[in-house]
Design a protein around this nucleic acid. Structure first.
Lengths: 353, 353
DNA sequence: AGCTGGACGGCAAGCGATTGCCATCTATTG
DNA sequence: CAATAGATGGCAATCGCTTGCCGTCCAGCT
């Protein structure tokens, strides 16, 4: 009660440990310890300090704390394109895990540019304790370079010596192919995403493999932008596809494709079955509802941050570990029996649209 | 070239101005000035310093810089629920504007909790230069409190003495009512969002006013959660609505409503016209495509950050200014002529679904 | 020639915390 | 009762950068 820092007055700069120390009649170091080192200070003293601090409205300045310790409680989350719902989901999960651990998310939108990504990261690096890289456009070596300076985890991509977290696209693809195969489809077209996309390559390879196991033929078409517009474009250029089923790189493309097809008078799923990838929210809102391979994006973001934080804590990093998240096929209405298939074909109880 | 900080070696801590100073044979202060005070240092010297710095891979530590200056180049963006596409759009716009000004976005998800929001903000406050509050759950006075400490802008809400940026819901509503009126609808039901939502109240009042101007009657129903599930729930509870048209608080609810209605065998727009709010991406992907009042969320985020940054720079803040962003009705397929309306009614060339 | 002022660099004091080390004091032990 | 360990608090250095102030040097002016 000695000197009131005018709590209602103008923007008198916020109180520091020195103010609290003075008001409580102790040394600043004691104030610091009262907060960050419980037990190191007499319980009664600590209590009094906390009391005074509360009265003064004291809050530790995170910057000042971070300078000597390096603990910024900040995680960078680098996203190629925030507009993509998948990444939004990842951010949601990451944000949640971060909050649970008292961390904050620094959102970096790389805008699909490797240049921008590298620069932002360089600037951001000293201020964060760890990095989540979702769909990075950077080269493997650039990523490894960064990983040397801070704990880092890449999503949906494998980079040697770097911790990563990928979806089991392989298995998801297998489920999709099996599903289509059971519906009588003998040929599947893959609508591929951008060349630069690691995931698109993986998905294609997975499809190829799963298909050959099940005796299904595959074609590939694309690359198209991984957006609804890309799917529309594909529909326009493809005309009436040769195969009776299409698996798209992602849901947006699948949705675009369906719309384009419908506009051209081709019925989904009667004439063509369509499968998407990711199970974005909205994929169940289109007509017909989209059959898709669900990737646990939110869980992925959450797990990524948890893993990262574990590394941050453990001091002796053991990066390079890779975890795989399960995927599962969500069957909805955009897939159906191949036409002119013998009615005897089993497993053809798809609900009519 | 005196002492190589082992650029390829282990995690030797990153170089500081002292390292650069030593290598360049100048004082640390000169290095600092070479970067942050162009002209204050001899051009040749500055060039040499930059040279050496580049060789050493020097990057200013943003934390250390921020401590004495307060310039963190960080903007907090507080969102009630990141999963909501409208907020995602706002974040995208904000992020873009931030990046253009060399700022970074600190993403805070308040998870619809005023408690959480206040706490996070308290922790975050000292580390950011400004705050964007989208759909805050905090009280006006709490917001004013914070606004005293940092430049702050609220979105879609008006708080006295605080800068704000709202959409012209009033005008959007008027357009929607006019549209429905021209289609022959005489009664409109408002499907309202959460009680706590400032925007929902505004939209209802706007509807009420616009309707009375145009001689249309209105009902109100709700509150429901502002989600697809909320819309579904509304559909289930409402049964067959009395009125021939519904305006929902937002697109998600409108979409949920349409699905619920369709599931119950009520056709949209034949039997009931539905209008949404926001024009989220996806509203044009549902069937029928949703007629909606488009709010420029991305632009809003962008403008918010630009406005905020202007305040940050101008030192003598002049908060309290409110800007209004235009909205516009996007007519798609979910609205049509009221049934049993005389065919003479004009402006009824809605495309058949 | 003497003086003045601008350009350029350096010194050193912060910014607000953390923390290793030391000084005291008290309680415990032999 | 002396010696010692443990508890508690303070001192001061440190994190990396900014910046006010001062000193030096040289050019231009009278």
């Amino acid at each position: 009660m000695t000197d009131r820092p005018s709590p209602q007055g103008g923007a008198s700069r916020s109180p520091t440990i020195y103010d609290v120390a003075a008001a409580a009649g102790v040394a600043p170091s004691t104030v610091s310890r009262a907060f960050s080192r419980p037990g190191r200070v007499n319980a009664a003293t600590a209590e009094r300090i906390r009391q005074v601090a509360a009265e003064l409205g004291y809050h530790a300045n995170p910057l000042a704390r971070a300078l000597p310790t390096g603990r910024t409680t900040l995680i960078a989350c680098v996203i190629a394109d925030i507009a993509n719902p998948v990444f939004a989901e990842i951010v949601i999960g990451a944000q949640k895990a971060a909050r649970e651990a008292g961390y904050l998310i620094l959102l970096v939108d790389a805008q699909e540019s490797d240049q921008l990504e590298r620069e932002s990261l360089e600037r951001t690096l000293p201020a964060v304790e760890g990095i989540v890289l979702a769909s990075s456009r950077m080269s493997d070596s650039a990523i490894r370079m960064i990983a040397k300076q801070r704990p880092l985890i890449v999503l949906n991509r494998v980079v040697s010596d770097v911790t990563s977290l990928v979806n089991d696209d392989m298995d998801g693809m297998r489920q999709a192919v099996q599903h289509l195969s059971e519906l009588g489809h003998r040929t599947i077209t893959y609508l591929s995403g951008p060349e630069a996309s690691w995931a698109s390559g993986v998905r294609w390879r997975a499809l190829h493999e799963a298909a050959s196991e099940l005796g299904v033929r595959v074609h590939r078409t694309g690359a198209y932008p991984p957006t609804v517009a890309g799917g529309l474009q594909a529909a326009a250029e493809l005309g009436r596809p040769k195969s009776s089923a299409v698996i798209a790189y992602n849901d947006q493309m699948a949705i675009g494709l369906m719309r384009g097809l419908q506009a051209a008078g081709i019925q989904v799923p009667r004439e063509l079955s369509v499968v998407g990838f990711d199970n974005i929210s909205g994929s169940e809102l289109v007509t017909p509802e989209l059959t898709t391979i669900a990737a646990p994006a939110r869980i992925q973001g959450h797990t990524a941050v948890r893993t990262l934080l574990a590394e941050v804590g453990d001091s002796q990093a053991h990066p390079g570990k890779s975890a795989i998240l399960p995927t599962r096929l969500v069957v909805r209405q955009s897939t159906a029996c191949r036409r002119r298939t013998p009615p005897a074909a089993r497993a053809c109880e798809t609900p009519a649209p």
